[in-house]
Amino acid sequence: MKLCRYGEPGEERPALIDESGVLRSLAGVIGDLSPKVLAPARLASLAAIDPQSLPRVDHGQRLGVPVAGIGKYICIGLNYRDHAEEAGLSVPDEPIVFLKAITALSGPNDPILPPAGASRLDWEAELAVIIGTRAKTIELSAALDHVAGYCVANDVSERAFQMQSSQWDKGKGCDTFGPLGPWLVTKDDVPDPQNLEIWLDVNGRRMQRGNTRTMIFSVAEIVAYVSRYMTLMPGDVIATGTPPGVGMGMRPEPVYLRSGDLVELGIEGLGRQRQYVA
C-alpha cells in the first residue's frame, strides 16, 4: 500500500495511490497520516478499503511529507563501504548516528533552498525507514516488526558546514535539507529492504547508482542498534545511508549543486523525487 499526503504546506490531506497510480483521498476515513495511524491494526484497516470507493484527487497536486507529526529524523552515516572510501573516511565498526532537524523536512518535489553562506551543496539518495510501533532496546530478530514502511529520502548536505566540526548536524539540518516521499510504502509491499536499487541524477546525469544489499549495517541492525540509545516512536524516520556517487567524492574535483540544478532520485518500488535548487 502506498500512502501519501497532498496539498499546500501546512494543509496536507491524507491519500493513497491505487494500483493504476491514481491518487485517492483518505480525508473521509482518517484525519491525517499521523503516527497513530501507523500501528499494524490501523494500517490493516486502510489496506482493507476498496480504493475505487475513495474520491479521486485531481492530477498535479503538490505532495508533502508522507507522515505528519514526525518526532525524530535519525540518520546513519557512512553505511556503504564504497561511500566511506570515496569520502576518505574510515569504514565504521558500528553505525554512525546523527540527527536532522525536523524543520529540514520538505515534500519530495519541493525546491532545495541553500542557506546563506552555502558553497558545497551536496546530494545523498537514501532508503528511509518509518517506525510504526514503539521500540526500546529490542532484539535484532524483532526489529522489522516495529517498521511501518519505507520511503525515499534525500539527505541534502552542505559540506562546508558539515566539516567545520566533528558534529555533522549543522550541515545536515538546514531548512529543506530533508525531502521525504513521495509515498510511505508499507512493509508488506517491500518483502526485502536489503535488495532495492537506488539512483540519483543531477541535470540528467547519473551520479549515484547502488543497491541496499551493499549496506554495512542492515535495516534490522540499524533499528535494533538505535533502539538501545533512544526510544523509537511511531512516525520516527531513520535514513539508512547513501551509496557512492556524492558530489564531495567526485574526481578529479568535487562537484556541488548550483542554483537552477535539477536533482532527481528514486528507489525501486518506492517512487521518485524531483527537486530544483533555488
Rank of each mutant, 00 (worst) to 15 (best):
L3N: 10
L3T: 13
R5H: 07
E11S: 11
E12C: 12
R13Y: 12
G21Q: 08
S25T: 02
G31E: 10
D32G: 12
K36M: 03
A39H: 13
A39I: 04
R42E: 13
R42T: 08
L46D: 06
S53M: 05
V57M: 02
R62F: 12
V65P: 02
V65Y: 05
P66E: 02
V67E: 01
K72Q: 15
I76M: 06
E86A: 14
D93N: 14
L99I: 13
K100T: 14
A101T: 11
A104I: 13
L105P: 13
L105S: 13
P108L: 07
P111D: 12
I112W: 03
I112F: 08
L113S: 05
E124K: 05
V129Y: 09
I130G: 00
I130R: 01
T137P: 00
L140C: 07
L140R: 15
H146A: 06
H146R: 14
Y150N: 04
V152K: 07
A153Y: 14
N154H: 15
D155R: 09
V156G: 04
R159D: 09
R159F: 08
Q164R: 15
S165T: 15
G171E: 06
K172C: 05
T186V: 09
T186Y: 05
K187C: 08
E197G: 10
I198P: 01
L200K: 04
V202K: 00
V202F: 06
N203M: 06
R206E: 04
G210E: 02
N211Y: 03
T212N: 01
I216L: 15
S218Y: 01
A220G: 03
E221F: 00
V223P: 00
A224K: 14
Y225M: 02
V226A: 08
R228A: 04
R228W: 09
R228I: 02
G235K: 04
G235R: 10
D236N: 05
A239F: 13
P244N: 11
G245I: 05
G245K: 08
V246K: 11
L257E: 02
R258Q: 15
D261A: 09
E264P: 06
G266C: 07
G266S: 10
G266F: 11
G271I: 06
R272V: 01
